[in-house]
Write a protein that binds this DNA or RNA. Sequence first.
DNA 1: AAGGCAAATGTTTTT
DNA 2: CATTTGCCTT
Length: 718
Amino acid sequence: MDVTSIIDSLNPAQREAVSSADPYQLVLAGAGSGKTRVLVHRIAWLMQVEGLSPYQILAVTFTNKAAREMRERISDLIGFAPQGMWVGTFHGLAHRLLKMHWRDAGLPEGFQILDAEDQLRVIKRVYAALNMDAEKWPPRQAQWYINEQKDEGLRAAHIQQSPDPFTVAMLQIYHAYEEACQRGGLVDFGELLLRAHELWLNKPELLAHYQDRFQHILVDEFQDTNSIQYAWLRVLAGNKLGMTAVGDDDQSIYGWRGAKIENIQNYTHDFEAVTTVRLEQNYRSTATILKAANGVISQNANRLGKTLWTDGQDGELLSLYAGFNEQDEARFIGERIQDWIAKGNMRSDVAILYRSNAQSRILEEALLRLQIPYRIYGGHRFYERLEIKNALAYLRLLMNRHDDAAFERVINTPTRGIGDKTVQRLRDTARAHQQSLWAAAETEVENLPARASNAVRGFLAMVSELAEDYQSLTLDGLTDQVLEASGLLEFYRREKGERGQTRVENLEELINACRAYEAPDPDSPALPQFIDEAVLDAGERQAESDEDAVQLMTLHSAKGLEFPLVFMAGMEENLFPHKMSLEESGRLEEERRLCYVGITRAMEKLYLTYAETRRLYGQESFNRVSRFIRDIPSEVLQEVRLSANVSRPTSFVKKPATLSDEGSGSGFALGQQVKHKIFGEGVILSFEGNGPNGRVQVNFVNEGTKWMVLQYAKLQAL
DNA sequence: AAGGCAAATGTTTTT
DNA sequence: CATTTGCCTT
């Protein structure tokens, strides 16, 4: 047994964590301390030294990306892909269990997963059925309430009735929502976890089976677990299985979403003799950056306690820049990035982090003006985009003609003359006969007015025809067929503006995803597996884009990433810490952890910037510099002032956008030769607007004239 | 069914 | 301020 390859490259603390013989372990892993490395090596150790088979190991992560990375790194380390190991997200694993044991879980075999949008739709339907006042209790609030309860492991029946009208209304909705989901075989994200937990409680023999099977559980990002996730783990582990929990209380930033930082402490009490290992040596940042990070986080009370250190260089001081306003701040950042690139560095090594998405626009505009390519993280996820969801709804309908949600979604998408009245009639018929909308449509089609009747008949025939291809075609072939036959692709092709073009590109990307898809179970049809995975997948595939672009993202989405050069923008009171979080002290501490997360993303150089005046939501505000800045030891912080006389008001008077002005800053000139990935070569004919929504009209040699958004078009100057 | 208009609304986000 | 949503009109 060659143990050396597993522990040789590790530091003492990592080694202790990896080779521990104790059944329960807590690894407090500071930012950049080799957390994933420890998890991966621990798994290798369990297999190669303690003799566990992959089959006996369960590894839980928070995101699909993390799960994927862990799998890859295990394979790299041990030299082959471990077969039979369960590595996945809480939701993914719960889904897997429920799929296998649907009967025991009280679900129909083909239950559907609801994403946030689907869930809201169901809630709105419940409102209609209950005659609930959507003005008084916004459906979003009900959705929030339901999810909050589910995160805590509470069903409607568990919640105490209370006299206050809010609770009364919410409970009524929650009850009706549960019924609607049960009737329709619908499972939301929280429900996956709740059912998986109940599966353990209600089916002891099943629990026993898995406790027998798994010998060790590894949990990543333990500080992000919510109550129901922890409960699920706790029951499964019983006092039988070993467990390695890895997390960092200082990086807990999802409390507002139900994450319970207390789970870390609970773990040490709920299990016997939990040994704690601290990983404090940081391999990412300079000593200077770590000093700043430690300074900030030390202001929080009740920490489990960790101090990051490095044996590396001090590196450069942090720079603080006070912009005159947000434009100036953005310009400063852009210029520093230009300097960076001029020195031969990669744009993709630069990240601009901010507290809230609203800040991104000004930054984008500045980058656009300076012709610096950038990429924004976050926003709408791939599989949540309208066109993608519509395409998936067609596919779902092919799998199951009685999927009402899918039916409703596509019956008149693209529009084919089936209006609200007709659909309402189908709903009524379906309800009266206790049947699906599809079944109702099949019978009711004869009784409809001629025009609607023809339209419905056409729709039914189209879907039936497609369904015949379902078995014979490959996944991408089928999707391609669906997009063509349904008219969906054509519909978006015709949609004017660049919006349609992006949608068409996304649909093409969907076909690519289908082509590349490898079903976990090759023996059963790929489509259902693909659909389920899509709902549970944020679609980070696009994130791994290879273009060299500056990365813009919120502080939240930066967690887990690292960049040589980092900018934290908007370091102002009310913005960061956000004013919404000032009331409760717990919230403020979470903001501080967010700041700590931000600082520790930086490897070499960190800029902190703020604006003395900021225009936000149409209001001019004068915010003081963030209190977090004052928590940074002054000896590591240097204030930057650029040629002060130039940087004052006059140069920032907003120029009114005149027609001739347009196009400036786009990086392109009228008549310029450009190249597009899909459309080939062309010439720029005109501009419209600027900023992220700035558009260019391009006359392509082969494709004719098109308008496109600069941000998406990725035009290349020739 | 599409387009126009007023009103609401604006932390953070994975699954 | 700017974007999204719902509602109304054609």
